[in-house]
């Protein structure tokens, strides 16, 4: 009896902490917001990578997305992907959200130093995308790197 109670409380806790939506519900819900940002997603490095099957570099080009005050890069990115029905996968929670793959292109697919990085107004912040607060009119670029950022202008300096 005790065990049963414990397990049911655990299941209820897990279910309430997740929001489960059907695909239609998810894509039809729109996020409102008065501020706008511009998002581009590009994987030209993956197209050039030897042995890659990727043909198209532009996944999203200069897309205007709305966001609320206090929203982070991750929130704006999420809304853009939702509106344009782009697949992505993330892991982690809170400030430590990490984007593993966008549009079926995943980290480590083009060598062991490959993955997604983001820049805001041309600079690469070295913090998680859910920790960077956006300002109105910011330009976000999600870029795929095959060499720890060296090929997209964000060389990794070992300290």
């Amino acid at each position: 009896m005790k065990k049963f109670l414990l397990i049911s409380i655990l299941i209820i806790f897990v279910l309430t902490s997740c929001s489960i939506k059907s695909a239609d519900d998810y894509y039809n819900s729109t996020e409102s917001g008065t501020l706008t940002a511009t998002i581009s997603i590009n994987c030209s490095t993956a197209v050039e990578y030897k042995g890659s099957k990727r043909k198209k570099a532009e996944i999203l080009t200069d897309y205007k997305v709305n966001f609320k005050k206090g929203d982070t890069v991750f929130d704006a990115f999420k809304n853009a992907c939702k509106n344009k029905k782009i697949q992505f996968e993330y892991s982690g929670m809170g400030d430590n959200i990490y984007i593993e793959g966008i549009d079926y292109l995943y980290e480590f697919e083009c060598g062991e130093h490959s993955g997604w990085e983001y820049s805001v107004n041309g600079a690469f912040p070295s913090i998680g995308c859910n920790a960077y607060e956006l300002k109105n009119g910011d330009t976000i670029r999600w870029l795929y790197t095959c060499d720890l950022g060296a090929d997209i202008g964000n060389k990794y300096e070992h300290t």
């Binding site: 997740c18 489960i20 697949q87």
Partner: peptide, 12 residues
Amino acid sequence: HNGKTVLFFIND
């Protein structure tokens, strides 16, 4: 969460 055929969404 890779894959084209979506069944449903959990936390985005």
